[in-house]
Amino acid sequence: MSSYTHEVASLNAANVWSMRTAASLAELQGDSASAADLRAEAEALLPAVIARYVPGEGIFTAGQPDGTQLPVRHCYDFSVVGTTIADDLTPGVRDDMVSFFQRELQTDNWMRALSPWDADASYSPRPDHQWNGAYPAWPADAGRALAALGAPEVLTSWVEGLSRTANQGPMGQAHFVEEAVPGINGGARKAPPQLPYIIDWSCSSSGAWIELVIEALFGVSVAADGTVRAAGCVAALDPQAVLRGLRVGERHYDIHASGGITETAG
C-alpha cells in the first residue's frame, strides 16, 4: 500500500497496549513511579488513536504531515486496534469495525488484506497486502480481534472455511481470495513465487494461528503475575474441547471449553 504512512491507528494502538503492559511489569517489580509514568503516556496517546476513527465506517485514517487524513480500509487497523484497545472503544465503534470486516474483508475461507473499495486497491498485485488475498497472520489476527470486539460468533462460524485453507500444509506467505484465483479443495489457494506475486510457499507468521487458538478460541489470558484466566468461544464448536498441557512459566494447565482450568503435572 502507498497510503498507509505516517500517523496510523494500528501501531499507535499497539503502543498504548505496550506501555500499559510495561506498566504492569514495572509495578510487579515494585517500580510504581515508572508504572504511573507509562500509564499516563498510554492514556495521553489513546485519544489521538481514537480520533483517527471514521464514524460509521469501521475504519481509521492515516494522518499526513500536511494535516490531511487518508481513510484506509486495510485489515491491519482492524486487527491491531481490535486486539489491543477494544475495551477503550464504544460499543458502536466495535460494531462498526466488525461490520466493516464482514462486508469488505472476510471471505468464506480466507480474507482480503485490503478492501476492494480502498482507493489504493490497484497499487500492487501482491496478495499479502492487497484486495486479492492476505498474509497468513492476518486471518488469525482478525479472528482474535473479532473475539475481543465482542463478535466471537463471527469467528467460530468462519473457522471451518479457514480450516480448508490449511489443508495445503503450512500457510503460505499469502493466499488468494477465490474472487481472484479459484481455490483448491475448498480452501484459499496459496500464491506462487513467480512474478508478479513473489510469494514464499510457507511463512513463519503461520505461528499466529497458535495464538488464535489459545487467546481467542480458548480465551486464555495471563496476567503479569502469572494468573491464568480463560473465557473463550470454542464451546460453540465443541463443548468438550480441551487444550492440554499449556505451559505458563513453570506450570502446566489444561484449559476446558467451559472456561475451567486444571493445573497438571506437566
Results as ranks from 00 to 15, higher is better:
residue 118 D to Q: 09
residue 120 D to W: 03
residue 120 D to H: 09
residue 120 D to P: 05
residue 120 D to E: 12
residue 122 S to R: 11
residue 123 Y to R: 13
residue 124 S to Q: 03
residue 125 P to N: 08
residue 125 P to S: 12
residue 126 R to A: 10
residue 128 D to M: 06
residue 132 N to P: 03
residue 133 G to S: 01
residue 133 G to V: 01
residue 135 Y to W: 15
residue 136 P to W: 07
residue 137 A to G: 03
residue 139 P to C: 07
residue 141 D to I: 00
residue 142 A to E: 04
residue 151 A to F: 00
residue 152 P to C: 14
residue 153 E to V: 00
residue 155 L to S: 06
residue 157 S to D: 14
residue 159 V to W: 08
residue 160 E to P: 02
residue 161 G to A: 04
residue 162 L to I: 11
residue 162 L to K: 02
residue 165 T to N: 06
residue 165 T to M: 07
residue 167 N to W: 09
residue 172 G to M: 04
residue 173 Q to G: 15
residue 176 F to I: 03
residue 178 E to F: 04
residue 178 E to R: 09
residue 182 P to C: 03
residue 182 P to L: 03
residue 182 P to G: 04
residue 182 P to T: 05
residue 183 G to W: 00
residue 184 I to P: 00
residue 185 N to I: 01
residue 186 G to L: 06
residue 192 P to T: 13
residue 193 P to I: 12
residue 193 P to T: 08
residue 195 L to R: 13
residue 195 L to T: 14
residue 196 P to G: 00
residue 197 Y to G: 00
residue 199 I to F: 01
residue 199 I to Y: 01
residue 202 S to Q: 13
residue 202 S to R: 15
residue 204 S to F: 06
residue 204 S to H: 10
residue 204 S to V: 11
residue 204 S to T: 12
residue 207 G to F: 05
residue 208 A to C: 10
residue 210 I to Q: 03
residue 210 I to E: 05
residue 211 E to W: 10
residue 211 E to T: 10
residue 220 V to F: 06
residue 220 V to L: 13
residue 220 V to E: 00
residue 221 S to D: 14
residue 221 S to R: 13
residue 223 A to F: 09
residue 224 A to M: 08
residue 225 D to R: 11
residue 225 D to S: 13
residue 226 G to Y: 11
residue 227 T to N: 06
residue 240 Q to N: 15
residue 240 Q to C: 10
residue 241 A to C: 07
residue 242 V to E: 15
residue 244 R to H: 13
residue 244 R to G: 02
residue 244 R to K: 14
residue 245 G to R: 03
residue 245 G to W: 03
residue 246 L to E: 06
